[in-house]
């Protein structure tokens, strides 16, 4: 498979080279290589929550038939890791992923971040933008499997996203189980002690609303939407 791909690439290069030669006159060795067509996107995310900082956002370009998550199905370990600890780097090696650009850091409630993404023509398919709500056991919000192939240069789309429960960790809200500043507890744990399917997050309860051993307070509760995402294609 890898060999045939290489062979195809070499053949394509040879065709381009001969065309270049035909179109050229005398000093043929000064001809610059053709610029690869570039698809440049500016992704802006805003944290709409009251008191749920976002982990560094993962902007992931991938194939349409390999979504990063599917509601009703178990989370991948890479997604579980993001949802429990905030570390999205493992998504880079998921099947079908062409590119991952990570945000520079935590996005505090009310704050925004702009992330640039540059793709080759072959990489343009679907986009996912995903981040953990860090004052939770395993909540994440994200735009999943959005088709950007029809987005024309100079145009933009703006969407708001809902919050998912990775279903990989019991929403105990207990001391030591939440990595965000509300607790400073554990991040990733390979054990799966919840329903083991991605679903619409039921929200956090908090001690203020009757979950007596919760480390969370009223301000950590959230409602949908939790994030706004703008995708603008500059080129």
């Amino acid at each position: 498979m890898a060999y045939s791909t290489f062979k195809y690439g070499a053949t394509a290069f040879a065709v381009v080279a001969s065309l270049t030669l035909v179109g050229c006159s005398d000093d043929d060795d000064q001809t610059p290589a053709p610029e690869p067509e570039s698809f440049d996107y500016v992704v802006t995310v805003t944290n709409l929550t009251a008191n749920q900082p976002f982990s560094p956002v993962a902007v992931v370009a991938h194939q349409a038939d390999t979504p990063l998550w599917t509601a009703g199905m178990p989370a991948s370990v890479a997604l579980e890791t993001l949802a429990e600890s905030g570390d999205g780097s493992g998504l880079a090696t998921e099947t079908g992923v062409a590119a991952l650009v990570s945000g520079s850091g935590i996005i505090a409630p009310g704050m925004s971040e702009t992330i640039n993404l540059s793709l080759t023509a072959a990489q343009v398919s679907n986009l996912s933008v995903v981040t953990m709500l860090v004052n939770t056991n395993d909540a994440f919000t994200g735009l999943g499997n959005y088709d950007i192939s029809a987005l024309a240069a100079g145009s933009m789309v703006k969407m708001r996203t809902i919050t998912y429960d990775a279903g990989t960790e019991n929403n105990s809200e207990a001391k030591g189980t939440i990595p965000g500043p509300a607790d400073g507890g554990e991040g990733f744990n390979a054990a799966r002690d919840d329903v083991n399917r991605v679903h619409s997050h039921p929200g956090v309860i908090s001690a203020d609303d009757g979950l007596s051993d919760s480390v969370l307070g009223a301000s950590h509760r959230f409602d949908n939407p939790t994030m706004s995402v703008t995708i603008a294609r500059s080129e």
């Binding site: 919050t163 929403n171 619409s200 039921p202 929200g203 309860i205 979950l211």
Partner: peptide
């Protein structure tokens, strides 16, 4: 049970 029966919208797709 507040740990089981709560929801946020959306509830279906």
């Amino acid at each position: 049970d507040s740990r089981i029966h709560r929801w946020l919208n959306p509830v279906a797709r």
